[in-house]
């Protein structure tokens, strides 16, 4: 390796070069180690005496059981022995790490409830700012975190979001594959600025879903599924699902989801840019004759309500005529 280094030119010889790399500030080394899967960070303890304790200064932890002890995705199946090793590893790390604040925790894939509680309590105690996880059953105390700014949850399969939601300090929230089962979840997040709902769905029982947060600036709802067979198949139709957005600071809205979904956002007065895309489910065409007209009139009503927006696009897929409007 040193020989290879020498082949790179520049007036400096290799020895000088190594000295300079030795001078790489500890903070940068700690930062690099913080970005790696934690098991690789810990293993640098055998590099040299100086490096023995570098890893204990990591500002972030990255635990992922399916990568633990192996190349990514090489052994995807859950095995008891591996799970035990992973759990042992996590407990050791939490015990040995220096008690600094935790900037970010990535935690994926433990079925062991006690370990999960241990990890989340550790995160709470170390004032975690960002959490990326595939788990949703946090210990109740964790919901009261006053430090968590960013939360990203992407479970392996569709999960029901419990309420109350808590997390009063959140500014960024990203939920993926979550069933939004109760009507008004995010009202506890008074500081929320960015909300992303990806591949989420409304529970069948939810008629009206509220998103009301005073500081929300960007709202992205992509691939929202509105499961509503009754609407399409029954003659005594129920009302269409209603999404009520009460966000006086909202500037940008991106919504892509299945029709029927009505939108009410009369409290959003400072909107700059709105893009709405509705895709009626394929089966609807066989069951309703006038759905297209109905859909268009709903869209028109939406456009009227949003006429104050500087930049507006509304479109309906599947319809031959896509209904687009641009208001300046």
């Amino acid at each position: 390796m040193e020989g290879q280094q020498q082949t790179r030119k520049k007036g400096k010889n290799s020895a000088e070069m190594l000295d300079r790399l030795g001078d790489l500030p500890d903070s940068i080394i700690h930062h690099i180690l913080s970005l790696m899967p934690t098991e690789y960070a810990v293993r640098t303890c055998v590099l040299s005496k100086k490096w023995r304790h570098h890893w204990t200064h990591v500002h972030s932890l990255n635990f992922k059981w399916d990568t633990f002890g192996g190349a990514y995705y090489s052994r995807p199946r859950y095995s008891r022995g591996r799970a035990n090793k992973f759990e042992r590893f996590v407990r050791h790390v939490l015990r040995c790490r220096q008690p600094f604040k935790l900037r970010r925790l990535k935690f994926h894939g433990s079925r062991n409830l006690r370990l999960r509680n241990r990890v989340f309590n550790y995160a709470l105690l170390h004032r975690v700012k960002e959490l990326v996880t595939d788990i949703y059953d946090f210990p109740p105390r964790f919901l009261e975190s006053q430090t968590l700014r960013t939360l990203k949850v992407k479970p392996l399969y569709m999960l029901r979001l419990p309420s109350p939601f808590g997390f009063a300090a959140l500014t960024t929230l990203q939920l993926e594959r979550i069933r939004l089962a109760s009507a008004d979840i995010f009202s506890s997040c008074l500081k929320l600025e960015d909300l992303l709902l990806i591949d989420c769905s409304f529970g069948v029982a939810v008629e009206v879903f509220n998103i009301s947060t005073p500081q929300l600036i960007n709202l992205t709802i992509s691939d929202l599924t509105v499961t509503d067979y009754d609407y399409w198949f029954k003659s005594n139709r129920r009302n269409k699902k209603l999404l009520v957005i009460s966000a006086p600071s909202l500037k940008v809205l991106y919504l892509r989801g299945t029709y029927p979904l009505l939108l009410s956002m009369n409290k959003c007065k400072v909107l700059d840019k709105v893009s709405i895309q509705m895709c009626p489910p394929a089966y609807c065409r066989h069951n309703r004759d006038n759905w297209k007209q109905e859909c268009i009139s709903d869209i028109q009503r939406m456009a009227e309500e949003l006429s104050h927006v500087k930049w507006l696009t509304i479109s309906v897929d599947v319809c031959e005529e896509s209904n687009k409007a641009k208001v300046v």
């Binding site: 293993r43 040299s48 050791h92």
Partner: peptide
């Protein structure tokens, strides 16, 4: 070690001891 240009200043015995202490981090290295 080569990437950072680190000189290994452990004696083989010391390195062995560290590996043993951190044995929980080296399980199933691949």
């Amino acid at each position: 070690r080569a990437f950072f240009g680190i000189e290994n200043d452990f004696t083989p015995q010391e390195e062995e001891a560290v590996r043993k202490e951190y044995e929980w981090a080296f399980e199933g290295v691949d």
